[in-house]
Nucleic acid binder design. Structure first.
Lengths: 143, 143
DNA sequence: TCTAAATTTAGAATAGTTCTAAATCTGGAA
DNA sequence: TTCCAGATTTAGAACTATTCTAAATTTAGA
């Protein structure tokens, strides 16, 4: 059954989350589904603490260890990506799985995804360098 | 071993270090000069622990708090730059003060400076984005 | 229903760094 | 020189983000 979004914030129904977890080889427990409702949907670059804060409102008594454990499992399963940026100690999690870059608004601390078509890079390195991945962080302000 | 792709750092004499500290408004104490002999000269992207380990050999009894304190002062004075990369929790310090990027050799963990002339970036962002800084991390291997 | 395996949990442990407050050192004034 | 206020250094405590531990609970499947 494919329920349509109940609120504009919900992009996946619990059933859709459940099947995504199953097909990724992750057992869909109540806690994991609850966390996914946030991190795979409306959350924008949340930290573990922000996931915990959301969970406290929506799934009372979830433990911080489970939040970390679940986030790690989702990253391992390829359903979430983990980033660490210079402006904070905390890891942030991103449900945008396509290759992309980031812009940090230094005035607000907001992180914004920059899609690859918004910039082009021309590498002129010696051929001994084999580049597998490129992470670009733009910093500035937005008006 | 292949030549390192880094700007070579001239070693500074204690007197040169002293005058660089003074003109940066930093009181040149014995501990600070000792730390500078490493971090402003031969050190390549050291962590605080690596600075401490070097200091233990060259300036017995220096405390870890002084190492952190001095590194912070050098960064604030503009004599050193601090970076945080995704592959490690620890800050690394860089005496290459010119704008540049980094390559992480995923096989060895080695960080290599990439000078701006080794790549070019073309931004196509909306004009509301005001970019002040750009950090690029290339990841891969080197043969 | 039963049970082995997986999951969750609270709290302890850990790593990297910063803080605290007492001891020591420093550069000028006298 | 001697003195002193302020700067610096220090050991260890505290802190933050995260991982680990081991016991309790839940789950899937026979």
């Amino acid at each position: 059954m494919k329920a349509k979004n109940q609120t504009p914030n919900h992009c996946l129904s619990p059933n859709e989350i459940e099947s995504r977890l199953k097909s990724a080889g992750v057992q869909p427990t109540a806690q994991r589904i609850a966390i996914c409702r946030f991190v795979l949907c409306e959350a924008k670059h949340p930290t573990a603490e922000q996931v915990k804060a959301w969970a406290d409102l929506n799934f009372p008594k979830i433990s911080l260890a489970t939040v970390y454990n679940t986030l790690g499992i989702l990253v391992q399963a390829g359903l979430l990506k983990e980033y660490r940026f210079p402006h904070t100690e905390s890891s942030v999690y991103d449900n945008n799985l396509t290759s992309h870059h980031h812009f940090l608004d230094e005035a607000t601390g907001e992180l914004i995804d920059i899609e690859p078509d918004q910039l082009s890079v021309n590498l002129k390195l010696k051929p001994s360098f084999k580049i597998k991945e490129m992470e670009i962080l733009l910093k500035g302000t937005r008006s």
